[in-house]
């Protein structure tokens, strides 16, 4: 109750910092906010050319590959960008934290939310892809009522990013090495998440390798999202419960670690 009241008082700060992060991200660039749209479009074209053309052999039987790829890429990109920025947020706002009382979780939280807003804008690229391929493709995406369930995986993704962001920001204050380790981890995650491949097509026979791949919550989230916007089917309920449970657990661990350690932040930044 006390925390909620404090959060309510500082909601303006949350709003202002989210606003600031979005505004400053594209300041001084000629195309400005248009980049949130252009960047996923261009990188997806690169990925389609690489994995659909040069390395692509088994992709032929897959449903619409550009949409498949874009779904995975958008989710992966949002997750890594927002958690990376949340991780550095405490150290970057050291000048404020050292001088004025502010609830510190505002900083990781606002970074995730700011990224979430640009993520939502970049979803228009996906909408354009879907509309284009729906009318001009021999493998159109199947669009039906299930598309209205697509906010479910997106919300789980947001919860997951907040949780991981809180954990990383707490760790980063005490050990700056986490920044470099996480960079490597994100690269690993790019290959662990089925962005450009399909797990069933890898021909993995070892059960443990397959389970290790499926333990990745991003696997469940991307699959759920694709069910809604590409396959036109209900998402796998096991994926739903696993992703939701995993995300809530990270938030709980994140909040616990953050509250336990936040009074010591100032001595380390």
């Amino acid at each position: 109750m006390k925390y909620l009241k404090n959060f309510y008082k500082y909601r303006y700060l949350l709003y202002e910092i989210v606003r600031k992060n979005i505004k400053l991200q594209y300041r001084n660039s000629v195309l400005g906010i248009f980049w949130t749209f252009l960047q996923p479009l261009l990188t997806t074209i690169v990925l389609v050319l690489v994995f659909g053309g040069v390395f692509g052999s088994k992709r032929a039987d897959m449903v619409n590959f550009p949409i498949y790829l874009l779904c995975g890429r958008l989710i992966y990109e949002f997750f890594t960008q927002s958690t990376k920025r949340a991780m550095r947020s405490i150290r970057l706002s050291a000048s404020v934290i050292k001088k004025v009382y502010v609830p510190k979780y505002i900083y990781p939280l606002s970074n995730v939310i700011a990224n979430f807003v640009t993520f939502l804008i970049s979803l228009t690229v996906l909408a354009c892809f879907i509309i284009y391929f729906y009318f001009f493709s021999d493998k159109p995406p199947i669009i039906n009522g299930y598309i209205f369930l697509s906010p479910v995986p997106i919300l789980i993704l947001l919860i997951l990013s907040v949780g991981v962001g809180l954990i990383l920001s707490t760790l980063e204050v005490f050990f700056k090495d986490v920044e470099y380790l996480y960079e490597v981890f994100c690269m690993l995650l790019f290959y662990l998440t089925p962005i450009f491949y399909h797990v069933d097509q890898l021909g993995i026979t070892n059960r443990f390798v397959k389970m290790a791949l499926m333990a990745n919550p991003l696997y469940a989230i991307t699959n759920m999202f694709r069910s809604c916007v590409l396959y036109g089917e209900m998402f796998n309920m096991n994926h739903f419960w696993y992703a939701l449970g995993f995300s809530l657990l990270t938030v709980i661990i994140g909040l616990w670690a953050f509250y336990k350690k936040q009074d010591k932040f100032i001595l380390h930044i």
Partner: peptide, 15 residues
Amino acid sequence: KENIFLYGATMGYSR
């Protein structure tokens, strides 16, 4: 100008 609003929010005041 933008900092006036940011600083105000840091002290807990609305826009």
